[in-house]
Amino acid sequence: MSEATRVAPAGDAAAPVLDPVLDPVDRRLVLATQAGLPLVPRPYDAVGEPLGLSGAEVRARLTRLLENGVIRRIGVVPNHYAIGWTANGMSVWDVDDARVAELGPLIGSLDFVTHCYRRPRRPPLWPYNLFAMVHGASRDEVRAKVARIQALLGDACRGHDVLFSTRILKKAGLRLVE
């Protein structure tokens, strides 16, 4: 499936992937931190020690990786089920191609939408081109939020569905391997 490779960096569909390729030291730093930062008063010193880097060098590199978007953010990553967001619905919409570029950002700006993308249709099974992940404390709450999206899309939307997740089969995240 060659279309699977049409993946562009966030927010810039035209640019080829990659400006900042990781240099070998960055790569070792990613490997050393992808499982998490050490819970010690000087975590950057601790990360650098086995790599032969000073804490200042580690911090400078992490700052650069944050600036160029290789790191989205540094902090705690909650298990969203554990903090009360127990219902998540993947809402999917068949939106007029002429209007999806204008409506997508509007849906993405809703505070209960965590991801919003335009994706290809797979007719006849899958007529939907806009995906918006909606989170709530219950399915009814998710449905009410989906109704707000429907109202915003109005007559640009020809159909929609909400796919609730019923089981986490795997949750690992990307791991670089040595």
């Binding site: 540094i74 990553v77 909650p78």
Partner: peptide
């Protein structure tokens, strides 16, 4: 397991 991790969150596409 209230947190799944603590540390940097990487953006895969920006790493190539």
């Amino acid at each position: 397991r209230v947190l799944t991790r603590f540390g940097p969150l990487f953006q895969v596409e920006r790493m190539g």
